[in-house]
Computed example of a mutant assay.
Amino acid sequence: MKPRRVTSKQVAERAGVSQTTVSFVLNNVRDANISMETRERVLAAARELKYIPDVSARSLARGRSNNLALVLVQPHRQIFIDEYLPRVITGISDVVQEYGYRIIVERVHSSDSADIYQKLLYSKEAAGMIINFSYATDEHIQNIIACTNDGMPVVSLMNIHPNVYSVEVNKIDGVRIMTQHLIDLGYRRIACIAYDRSEENRHIHERVHVFLSTLRKNGIEPDLSLLRYGAFDPETGYAAMKDILESASRTGLPEVVFGLNDMMAFGAMRAIQESGLRVPDDIAVVGFDDVRLANFSSPPLTTMNEPDEEHGRLAAQMVTTLLEGKVPPERHISLNTRLVIRDSCGTHLRKK
């Protein structure tokens, strides 16, 4: 015999309140004038009765989906390598669960149809959307702008357009800070392993530009023979560093290598050590991201820390504010990175 489902009416009777009050509490309606004591009583009754809300009924009561879409516009492999994403999702989850939403993840490639954003939002499969770009084509950006202009709750994890709400980490300034740190340590021959030149994201190209311009501002003419390109994994960093080492007979060895993410820096470190050279004694290495393993590499990796969980939390707060029909205090938020100095940059050697 099929067990009978516990209803909100039974929860209301157990808590001694109306069904409307139960609905407001379980749907986390923040504008409802319900005391904390009443809220706790309703929640206790729901737990005691093992009440499971009907998701379709909840969506009907809200007039919208209980789903928030996290759209990842990036290569498939990056999703499983990049530590950034789990930390951002943790920050997003901390907020959206308080509002009774669930996260659905949609991976999109830049070559995919750019109307995926409209399909998710206009079909009401998702009530709102947070978008993370590894790269973005003009067509994708125009579709996101169209959603924003139609009043859809959309937040980008990168500032892609003045009209689109965004929370981003200022990676550009982070590249400048790291490059200046290396120059201040006295390094002049600075190699850089950047992202693939074919990437369509202008922010990626800006990072290389800032690296080169920071050298020039300090009176150092960049040696472009020390510039290589990788991706989001240690394998490409390893290959790029091997190429630099093999070219050293013609161009000379760099004093330090700046990997624009920690994974490429790890690969570069392995290639240097396999060649019989020491890090940082012969060639120093620095990265960007401050992944968990950065403090446990040998030697520990100097890098730029990104506030990834805060990034996710602020984006989630912005999109839930939009879902409540309110205007966020800021349309664009920019978070700073932080220099984390460890042994791999050779600070302890340069200061002797």
Rank of each mutant, 00 (worst) to 15 (best):
R188G: 14
L120S: 01
Q142P: 09
D94V: 14
C192T: 12
V71N: 00
E83W: 10
G346L: 07
Q10H: 09
A32G: 01
I89Q: 13
L253Y: 15
E139N: 12
G91E: 07
I204Y: 12
I160L: 06
V279E: 05
G267N: 08
G186Y: 04
D196K: 11
D223F: 09
G230T: 06
I160G: 02
E13F: 03
L224Y: 15
V25P: 02
V6F: 04
R58Y: 02
E98M: 06
M152G: 05
T148D: 07
S334K: 13
D262W: 10
Y84N: 14
G128E: 01
C345I: 06
V208W: 11
E206Y: 13
E13L: 12
I144L: 12
E206V: 11
V257I: 13
T38D: 01
N218C: 10
G312M: 01
I104V: 03
N149M: 11
R87E: 11
C192P: 12
A45P: 00
T7A: 02
Y51W: 00
G91S: 05
N159I: 08
S18M: 03
H109K: 15
F80Y: 08
I52A: 13
D82M: 05
E310S: 09
S56W: 09
D112M: 07
A136Q: 14
H140L: 08
N28Y: 07
I79Q: 00
L335A: 02
I244V: 05
M36Y: 01
F24H: 02
I92H: 01
V29R: 00
L182Q: 00
D281R: 15
R47K: 11
M158E: 10
S198W: 11
K9W: 08
A114Y: 13
T320I: 06
R338Q: 14
V169I: 09
F133Q: 03
Y195I: 13
L277T: 08
N305A: 15
A194K: 14
R207P: 06
F296W: 12
I283W: 03
S298C: 14
R4K: 14
R202N: 07
L227D: 03
D138I: 04
I204V: 12
